[in-house]
Amino acid sequence: MNAFLHPSDNRGHVKMGWLESKHSFSFGSWYNPKLMGVSALRVINDDIIAAHNGFGTHPHDNMEILTCVLDGTISHRDSMGNERHISAGEWQLMSAGTGVQHSEINNGDIPVHMLQIWIIPNERNAEPRYQQILRDPREQPNQWHLIAGPNTDAPMHIRQNTEVKTAVIEQGQHLPLEATQHINYVHVISGAVQIAEHKVEAGGAIAFLEASQIEALEDAQVIWFDLPEVQN
C-alpha cells in the first residue's frame, strides 16, 4: 500500500497559558515546510482550552472551518449574528467566505477538548454561513457517520469536493475505506488502528490512494477525509 504516515510525535506542540495545542500542519508560530496540509486540508489543531478562556474575536475569510468538540462546551459568537454553544458530540462548520469575525470561548469550569479543522474552499468570496449538527459516533459505533460533504443533502454542506466522516470503532472491528475521490486522509483522535500494514496511533494520521479497510487495535475514534486529488 502506497501511503504517507504522519505520526503523532511529528506534530507541533504549542503551550501558552490557557491553550495547549498540537498542530498536524504548519500553523501560527509552528512551521514545518514538509507539513503544509494534504490536498485542500490545511489545518488540524488538537486544542485543549482552559476554563473561562478562549479565542477572542478575530477575522477569517475564504476558509471552511470545521470544529469537533470532544469534551466540554465551547461558546461561539460571530458577526453573522450567531450565538451558539457547541458541546461534546456536536460539530460546527463556519464558511468564512467574504469575511467573518468570531470568538470561541470556554465559559465552563472544565477544559474544552476540541479539534479545529480548516479546508480550503473551491468557491471564493461566497456569502458567509454557519451550520451546526449533533453527530456523536459513540452512540452508534462501528459505522461511518457523514459530517460534511459537497452535496446539499449532506448534514453540513462544505464548499469543497470533500467528504468528512467519523466513526468510533470497537476493538477488533473493521470498517471499509472505499475512496470516492482521490486522496484519503485518516486522522486518529483516540486509540489505535491498522490500515493495511500500517499501525496509526492517537494523534497520528495516514494519507493513501487505494481503497482499504480500517481495523481497531483498541477502541478508537477516527476522522476520514475523502479529498480531491488536486486542490481546486
Rank of each mutant, 00 (worst) to 15 (best):
F27I: 11
E139I: 11
V222E: 06
S26Y: 01
D78R: 04
G191W: 13
S39Q: 12
V193Y: 10
F208V: 12
M1W: 00
I105P: 01
A40F: 01
M94H: 01
T166C: 14
I158M: 14
G97A: 10
F55G: 05
W224P: 08
P128Y: 09
G108F: 01
A211C: 14
H85W: 00
P141R: 04
E20M: 09
G172S: 01
L66G: 00
Q140R: 09
A220V: 06
L227K: 08
L66N: 02
T98C: 01
H58S: 02
G81H: 03
P33F: 04
I120C: 04
G191N: 15
N184R: 12
I158L: 09
A179M: 06
Q140Y: 05
I223N: 00
F4H: 13
K34E: 15
L5Y: 11
N125R: 12
Q221T: 15
I86W: 00
M94I: 06
Q194F: 01
T67F: 07
K34S: 15
A88Y: 04
D226N: 15
E64I: 10
S79A: 12
I117R: 05
E64P: 09
Q181R: 15
W224E: 04
A88G: 10
P228L: 12
P137G: 03
A40S: 11
E139V: 07
R11W: 04
L19H: 10
L227D: 06
Q231T: 13
T152V: 12
Q101W: 10
Q171D: 06
R124S: 09
H113F: 00
P155T: 04
V14I: 15
K165N: 14
N62S: 11
S8F: 05
I44W: 03
D71M: 11
V43A: 00
P33M: 02
H6Y: 10
H85V: 08
I48Y: 07
V100Q: 02
W144A: 03
M63L: 11
Q231P: 08
F55A: 05
Y31K: 15
T166M: 15
F27D: 04
H187M: 03
I49C: 04
G56A: 14
H145W: 09
A88I: 04
S26W: 06
E197C: 02
V193S: 10
L209Y: 09
H187D: 01
P128F: 11
E90W: 08
K15E: 15
A40T: 04
V38R: 01
H182T: 10
I158H: 06
N2W: 05
N107F: 07
G204K: 08
T180H: 13
L41N: 06
V222F: 06
V14W: 14
I158N: 07
H182Q: 12
T152A: 14
Q101C: 01
E197P: 13
H102T: 07
D71Y: 08
N161P: 00
D9K: 12
P7W: 00
K34Y: 08
Q92V: 05
W30P: 07
V164F: 05
H102P: 06
Q92L: 15
Q140W: 03
R77E: 13
G89L: 02
I183A: 00
L227C: 10
A167T: 12
N122I: 07
V38L: 03
D153Y: 05
P59F: 07
Q132S: 13
S190K: 14
E139C: 02
M114Q: 13
G172M: 09
F208I: 12
E170H: 14
M63K: 06
H85T: 05
